[in-house]
Computed example of a mutant assay.
Amino acid sequence: MAVNELYQYSLVNALMSGVSESGITAKQLIEKGNIGLGTFVKMQGELLLLDGKVYQLLAGGKIRIADDTDQIPYAVCTRFKPQSTETLTLENKDSVDTVLEKFNDHASNLFMAYRIEGRFRYLKCRTVKGQEYDGQPLSELGKKQFVAEYDNIEGTIVGFRSPSAWQGFFVAGEHMHFIDKDLKVGGHVLDIADGEVSMGVATIHQIHFELPTSEKFNSAKMSTDDVGLKSVEG
């Protein structure tokens, strides 16, 4: 993959339809980029790709390094090279979007990737514990998600901003995952307060999709549940 070209395997709508039984391997994902987000088979926790390693952010906040053969039913990543890096204060989660708009206010219909490193006075994160039955949709898993709050924590956030028109293919708007510097806790970011950080940003206009060929993917009845997506993704 070229620098700052987006790679995605499968669709968010597939997760919303409960399709998560198989996918590409962690080794294959690492070959596509250096930062990324996603999930694992049966939606067992959150995925974060960072600097050549794939981390599984499990319910309860614990973390494991994925094996090369672990399968990933959904992921998005890029070979990230920041076009701008700035030291700043993030007052809250909405401040991320403010920084992106300042960098490129003509990117509302393009994708943006970012990497944030620093200390946060407060972070609120969630993880899902995985499907309890075959085909259980992501929207239902979100109702039983594990939520953790962290005070004065240092670490890295990887995120993407996707255009509203792509809801269902991606998660429209902000989507970000966190891992602490000691690689002990992390999750999908729900809220931020008072982050003293360095933030790198890049605009993306090249996208590469790879879709599953499984019977379950091809037979799934997919539609965009905007309300459900917003509720589960925060």
Score class of each variant (00 low, 15 high):
97 D>I: 11
103 F>A: 11
14 A>R: 06
45 G>F: 09
38 G>A: 06
95 S>C: 02
12 V>E: 04
94 D>A: 15
49 L>H: 07
38 G>P: 05
16 M>F: 12
65 I>P: 05
42 K>H: 12
106 H>G: 02
101 E>N: 10
30 I>M: 08
102 K>G: 01
70 D>P: 03
87 T>E: 15
40 F>P: 13
28 Q>F: 09
26 A>G: 08
26 A>E: 05
100 L>P: 00
55 Y>V: 07
102 K>M: 13
13 N>F: 00
64 R>S: 11
17 S>Q: 08
61 G>W: 13
88 L>V: 15
56 Q>I: 14
32 K>L: 12
112 M>G: 01
45 G>K: 06
45 G>A: 09
73 P>N: 05
82 P>E: 04
37 L>V: 11
36 G>F: 11
43 M>T: 02
62 K>H: 11
109 N>K: 13
46 E>M: 02
73 P>R: 10
104 N>C: 05
112 M>T: 12
114 Y>L: 15
59 A>P: 01
18 G>M: 08
39 T>D: 10
43 M>R: 03
73 P>T: 12
107 A>V: 06
23 G>Y: 09
29 L>T: 02
99 V>E: 15
66 A>M: 10
23 G>A: 05
42 K>I: 05
71 Q>L: 13
41 V>H: 07
108 S>I: 11
91 E>D: 13
121 R>F: 03
105 D>T: 10
48 L>N: 03
78 T>D: 09
45 G>V: 13
91 E>A: 12
21 E>F: 00
70 D>G: 01
116 I>F: 04
28 Q>N: 08
94 D>E: 12
66 A>R: 03
25 T>P: 00
64 R>K: 15
25 T>A: 06
67 D>V: 03
110 L>P: 01
96 V>F: 11
78 T>L: 09
37 L>Q: 10
79 R>V: 01
38 G>V: 03
